[in-house]
Design a protein around this nucleic acid. Structure first.
Length: 275
DNA sequence: AGAGCTGTTACCAA
DNA sequence: TTTGGTAACAGCTC
């Protein structure tokens, strides 16, 4: 579930929780794979006594910078989520890691166990493989067009590729392609400069709108709760994603669902034509 | 009961 | 270089 807008929202919430600068008193790990390759002992040893100095987002990663310069990179994957609990609360069956503070706990909850926390002294190993942030000011229409021209892949799998552009997932790729009136199967190197520019603007518009709505929460799943328990409201603004069979808000054609690159894909067959 | 689906990504093979 | 398949895992829907 969490793509760029959801991770951004979580970072905003975590920054205002008052945990920054507070020393970590203890760590509880109930699912060791979450913190691979470190053991629970190594992980605790390097974090207990430290404090979070800052919290940033890069792509879909939450980047905690510790007060000794270490970096804790958290990827939520499908169902990861953070919440703040009172001290000594019973762990939920899907809680994987808890950071114990003097008066409360920061708990990482992850039903499907795909989420990962990586402790590193240098972020380059992980961030070095990522493409530009969608809002990177140096990523202008011309640069984006050039990037598209150097790939012959279909648009949708390319936009999902975090090495091409970072932060988009299935929801926002479908929404961005709809907004730009581009077919998910169109080939990247066939876009005109105007189409490339439209696509970049569409991506930014769709992401900005979702961030303003605190992200998209789908269904009632527990992957939806944010650190403060509030839900994002962007689901009601989605134009095509999970709206199969409904009418296109632009032309009233029926929204289609098909599989592109092994991913469920939603599009308007009239607005998004393959040229 | 059981099969097939799911918003992510790494890895491997062709 | 790009594509396709699989695996990690659990819950939901039909």
């Amino acid at each position: 579930m969490p793509e760029l807008p959801e991770v951004e929202t979580i970072c905003q919430d975590l920054r205002t929780c008052g945990l920054i600068g507070e020393p970590i008193r203890g760590i509880v790990v109930t699912w060791e794979k979450t913190i691979t390759p470190l053991s629970a002992e190594e992980f605790s040893g390097r974090l207990v006594g430290r404090a979070i100095a800052r919290i940033d987002r890069r792509a879909k990663y939450i980047h905690f910078t510790l007060d000794d310069g270490q970096n804790l990179l958290v990827h939520l994957r499908m169902t990861g989520a953070f919440s703040i609990r009172e001290s000594r609360c019973a762990m939920d069956s899907h809680d994987r890691v808890a950071f114990i503070y003097a008066d409360r706990e920061l708990v990482f909850h992850d039903t499907r166990k795909f989420g990962r926390m990586t402790l590193c002294t240098n972020t380059c190993g992980i961030f070095g493989r990522l493409g530009p942030e969608p809002f990177d000011p140096t990523l202008d229409a011309e640069v984006f067009h050039q990037k598209l021209m150097s790939h012959r892949r279909m648009l949708k799998p390319l936009l999902l590729d975090q090495g091409f552009i970072a932060g988009l997932g299935n929801i926002y790729v479908d929404e961005s392609l709809f907004a730009a009136r581009l077919h998910p199967c169109a080939h990247a190197d066939e876009l005109t400069p105007a189409q490339a520019s439209n696509l970049l603007m569409a991506i930014r518009l769709v992401l900005r709108e979702s961030i303003e709505n605190r992200g998209t929460s789908l269904g009632e799943g527990d992957g939806n709760f944010h650190s403060d328990g509030r839900y994002g409201s962007n689901a009601t603004r989605l134009k095509v994603f999970q709206r199969t069979g409904s009418t296109c808000p632009r032309c009233s054609a029926i929204i289609e669902r098909r599989v592109v690159g092994q991913r469920a894909t939603h599009l308007c067959p009239r607005c998004q034509v393959l040229s």
